Amino acid sequence: MDLVEILTYGFIQRALVAGTLIALLCSVLGVFLVLRRMSLIGDGLAHVTFGSAAIALALKLYSASALLVSLPIVLLSSLGILKLTEKARLSGDAAIGIVSSVGISAGIILASVGGGYNVDLLSYLFGNILSITQEEVFIAAGLFCIVMVLMLLFYHELLAVTLSEEMARVSGIRTNLISAVLVLLTALSVVLAMKLVGIMLISSLLILPAASALQLARSFKACVCMSAIQGCSSVIAGIFVSFVTNLPTSATVVLLNLACFGCAFLARYLLDPKRSN
């Protein structure tokens, strides 16, 4: 089976469109999160997404409807993490841990009450981009536009807060508002990535492309571009490889990203050993 024949399948076309949009969002946001040492927020919100998916399935909602149920829950949870760090004097990882544990516990209880882990819930856990529907593609495209517009509007503020939160605050930037914007954008991306790589592997899509780019990039813009290129390339290649080899798409995408990180780390060491120390 050649490449042209594979591209004639409708489910492959939908997977490529949605996967590319989701990978682009996660890769770009990942740079901000990794530099701000907030990369684990993706993992915490993924656990909340599991709970929201269990709620949707308990209500007999599937596909695009399940995404619409997950969105408000995950958005509110992301703001909850920020409020815990501000009001309860907790570190970011502690706040993420609390929200994460609540989300996963709620999901387990709801799954148990609903009769266990059925096929639909497992697809959210491990991802199945090849089963994405046309409605989900439209939702992904719409949310992609929203996230990109907001990111462009707040780009300079996000950059300032990422590089130095104290300097940004002194400069008059409302750092709390910008932090809220960042976690809300991350929450949107996490919900979208649920179908691509699954709840268990979402954090890898946020972290690995950014971590690879940071090995070689000499500027922030170069880092964002390299991260976006790796994220999109790994998803596109992962879809084709998984289809041909009959392997899980989500795990294939993550392993390709891991291979890219290994190559970037090795290249950094070989090109500039002093920078690697």
Rank of each mutant, 00 (worst) to 15 (best):
P72L: 00
P72A: 02
P72C: 01
I73E: 06
V74K: 11
L75W: 03
L75R: 12
L75F: 05
L76M: 12
S77I: 02
S77N: 04
S78Q: 02
L79C: 13
I81S: 03
L82C: 12
K83L: 15
T85M: 06
E86S: 13
K87Y: 04
A88I: 00
A88G: 02
R89C: 10
R89F: 14
R89L: 07
G92W: 00
G92T: 05
D93V: 00
A94C: 09
A95C: 12
I96E: 00
I96T: 01
G97L: 04
I98R: 03
V99A: 11
S100E: 11
S100T: 02
S100K: 09
S101T: 08
I104G: 07
I104W: 00
I104N: 02
A106G: 15
G107C: 12
I108M: 13
I108D: 11
I108V: 15
I108C: 13
I109L: 14
I109P: 11
L110P: 12
V113A: 03
V113F: 02
V113K: 03
G114M: 09
G114K: 07
G114W: 02
G114E: 06
G115W: 00
G115C: 04
G116F: 01
G116W: 01
G116L: 01
N118L: 11
L121Q: 06
L122F: 10
L122D: 11
L122C: 12
S123Y: 07
L125S: 02
F126T: 08
F126C: 09
F126Q: 12
G127V: 01
N128I: 01
S131Y: 05
T133C: 08
Q134E: 14
E135H: 08
F138Q: 09
A140I: 00
A140D: 03
G142Q: 04
L143P: 10
L143I: 14
L143M: 10
C145Y: 10
C145W: 10
I146R: 05
I146H: 04
V147H: 03
V149Y: 08
V149Q: 08
V149T: 07
L150P: 12
L152P: 13
L153G: 08
Y155S: 08
H156T: 15
E157S: 14
E157K: 12
L158F: 00
L158S: 05
L159Q: 15
L163R: 10
S164I: 00
S164T: 01
S164Y: 01
M167V: 15
M167Y: 11
A168W: 00
R169G: 13
V170G: 10
S171Q: 09
G172D: 05
G172L: 06
G172E: 06
I173E: 11
R174L: 15
R174V: 15
R174H: 15
R174D: 15
T175F: 06
I178D: 07
A180K: 13
V181E: 06
L182N: 13
L182T: 06
V183I: 10
V183D: 04
V183Q: 05
L184F: 01
L184V: 14
L184H: 07
L185Q: 03
L185M: 12
L188S: 08
S189G: 13
